[in-house]
Design a protein around this nucleic acid. Structure first.
Lengths: 191, 191
DNA sequence: GTCTATAACAGGATAGAC
DNA sequence: GTCTATCCTGTTATAGAC
């Protein structure tokens, strides 16, 4: 095994991501992160000036991953099934990346306590809304519809349904998405 | 000033509520809570066996307050404006009790990390859904509508819009609720 | 770059006086 | 019931050897 440049830093980031998702921001200790990464605790401060620094880097990386994932919607053909296909993208994220949503709610909680964190949430929500808005703009919609408001609603519903799914293993997320699709189709297409 | 029975305990709970909402579960120290309550730190452990014990008591009390608040919906007359009047209740909570929602998202973050916490979220979400369901059952709806799924969507949207409002002071929550009302009216009444 | 060791501090819980 | 003082543990960040 050769020493790849940037390898150690990435090992730390990966480990921190895991520990952060499992334990949350405050409880995620550098000791545990170092252990998980297979390095010494002191080394973390060689790559990151502080624990907070490391955590914010993770949130940024994950924000980017989210956008990337949601961009799959752009590739969906614009036929009468567009809405259900588009919503399948966030729905599947709950299954594929459960940690990702845990991390997101962690960010929400932190963000409501500090000014720096508040801006992080705002950016994250804004990015999600822009993605939804992009999709809405592909559809021929009436002028009377407030697209921005609608994008907000859809965006927060995606997060909320993910939470329900995580909190309650018996939650029928498929049924919820089905109803959401009906709701939107009725409003957007028949209105 | 006489010593009212249960007064000290309530002082602790009130202080803890404030500190918890401001700092979050992990950072909310018993030292700070004691300071805010105007008592000594050691006294907290006379009334509560542990910090966690204190925190859970707060979550339970707040859950009860939420239900109580939402029960106002039962008093709304069943006319054509029912939906908008009913949704005004949660919307106003964001303004009236900003701390309450901060606390709620704190609970969500904690809950996604421990089994005990997970059940707390589940209960809290379930209670909210039941309230929405109760309102939906007052309306004459088609059989084809999945009320439980719809209640979930409405319930999580309420939380989500509150988050947006807290994260972004410029967020137009009124517009969002207006669109939500239209969305529901279109689906429920015209469908 | 990476390690070990440790400094410097803060947290919750408890003991014991009053 | 309430206080003060203290114990014990765990935390992050840093110093210094390799």
């Amino acid at each position: 095994m050769k020493n790849v440049p940037g390898d150690t830093k990435n090992k730390i980031i990966d480990a921190a991501y895991q520990v952060l998702a499992e334990q949350g921001f405050e409880k995620a200790s550098t000791k545990e992160i170092a252990k998980q990464a297979g390095i010494s605790q002191g080394l973390i401060n060689y790559y990151f000036s502080s624990k907070e620094d490391l955590m914010f880097e993770i949130f940024h990386l994950e924000s980017a991953r989210y956008i990337e994932e949601m961009n799959k919607i752009s590739e969906i053909p614009l036929n009468e099934n567009f809405i259900r296909h588009a919503l399948a993208v966030p729905k599947n994220m709950v299954h594929q990346y459960p940690d990702w949503h845990r991390l997101r709610f962690e960010l929400f909680a932190i963000g409501l306590r500090s000014e720096a964190g508040r801006k992080e949430i705002q950016q994250s929500l804004e990015a999600g809304k822009q993605q939804v808005l992009k999709s809405l703009n592909m559809l021929p919609l009436k002028e009377s519809i407030n697209k921005k408001a609608l994008a907000s609603i859809i965006n927060v519903t995606i997060d909320g349904l993910a939470l329900e799914q995580m909190a309650d293993p018996d939650f029928d997320i498929d049924a919820a998405y089905l109803t959401l699709i009906e709701l939107l189709e009725t409003y957007l297409l028949k209105n």
